[in-house]
Design a protein around this nucleic acid. Structure first.
Lengths: 219, 219
DNA sequence: AAATGTGAAGAGGTTCACAGCG
DNA sequence: CGCTGTGAACCTCTTCACATTT
């Protein structure tokens, strides 16, 4: 979180008590879609909680949803269509997104395949690689470009999101070039912390970190 | 405010205030190793914070480290060798780990490659697949087994950690079979919540969830 | 009666301020 | 002096209890 430099006490510009967890809203969204597919038309916070499983409590769900407005029917539950639409809007999942991938080795290729065929809302619209044997070839209709040409190729493709799947040593430079080519959000698989302007959304998935959480439990 | 005015139920006060974040300890560990490689022998909380970058504060670092005991030298800093050793012990990174992978499609293959060649402490020791054209072949010395034979093959290989890279519909069943074959921790890439005994550590990496965090920022 | 919606209490985690010690 | 170590203040998020509405 970006924290203010103030050390005083008046810095509480709080205003909105927007205490909400986006990953949790995403779980709700998926749970609702599953329920819709199962034929439900209405859903209570209890039903959603047990569908999601894990430590989700009905109270938590209601609290979260209350921040989006009150559109449940007391004594009844939530209208599933209304709810899923609301969640999709908040999450930005009410439209499609074009994604650029930089680094088309094993991991980049796997991620592209996963997204293109399992996620309707996300489309691979640009691929960049350094390996000369891949440059110029196409993958499911997308031409693989030279990473060096990123500034030339990318700006025309309106990709707001990029995935970085290059070695850690190259990640920071790639990230900066992506941002100056119009990318506003980055999903980073390189095990390094990207230092970028604060308005750029960055999410780093660090395999070693995830594994160390597991080894900690086992130790 | 006075002490704990308890009007609630059980009082689970006192005890240890073990308020510690494992992902953060992992960042410290990596930061320390980088500093060691750079030739440092001693490190202050300030130096570590600026090395990690982002919103890490020296105070947070000192607070976290204080839970591991006090082994810094006041007015001086932390002995890097001592610190990295301590962190490794807590994180369970002071030994090697054998990992089983279930699902050797694009993603499983990419993860295996990433781990085997980029992470010293983690070794792929078992691979399971359903695709008949892969069963019986080997990957860097590891024979790919039929997922159906998991209960026969896995128990002898002492893999405490498993990675699930199968479709969501198969993940829960695979997870249960892994646990009954001796696995104690699971890194799950299937977009589904695994319901397992609470003593099994589970970490789910959900690509769609990560992307939705980004789309939320952009929306 | 059944479920939502929400102020208030409670936990949990972070930051402050400074004591403690090389 | 500089930097660690830490109780206390503080802030954020979760849970409780119950008023509210269909």
């Amino acid at each position: 979180m970006p924290k203010a430099g103030h050390n005083g006490k008046l810095d509480k510009s709080a205003e909105r008590g927007l205490v909400i967890s986006i990953p949790r809203l995403f779980l709700y969204h998926r749970g609702c879609e599953d329920a819709l597919r199962a034929g439900d038309r209405v859903l209570t916070s209890h039903e959603l909680a047990s569908r999601i499983g894990r430590g989700m409590s009905p109270t938590q769900i209601r609290k979260d949803l209350s921040y989006l407005g009150s559109f449940g029917r007391r004594g009844h539950g939530y209208d599933l269509v209304v709810l899923v639409k609301k969640l999709a809007r908040v999450l930005g999942l009410d439209r499609d997104w074009r994604i650029a991938i930089v680094g088309f080795g094993n991991l980049g290729h796997a991620l592209a395949t996963f997204l293109e065929f399992r996620e309707e809302k996300f489309h691979i619209a640009a691929i960049f690689e350094e390996d000369p044997s891949l440059i110029g070839t196409t993958w499911h209709g997308v031409t693989i470009s030279d990473t060096n040409d990123l500034e030339i190729v990318l700006p025309g493709l309106s990709c707001a999101i990029a995935i970085i799947a290059v070695p850690a040593s190259a990640a920071q430079a790639v990230a900066e070039r992506l941002v100056s080519s119009g990318v506003g959000a980055i999903l980073n698989f390189a095990p390094t912390n990207l230092a970028l302007a604060p308005e750029v959304a960055v999410r780093t998935i660090d395999l070693a970190s995830e594994l160390s959480i597991l080894t900690h439990h086992l130790a």
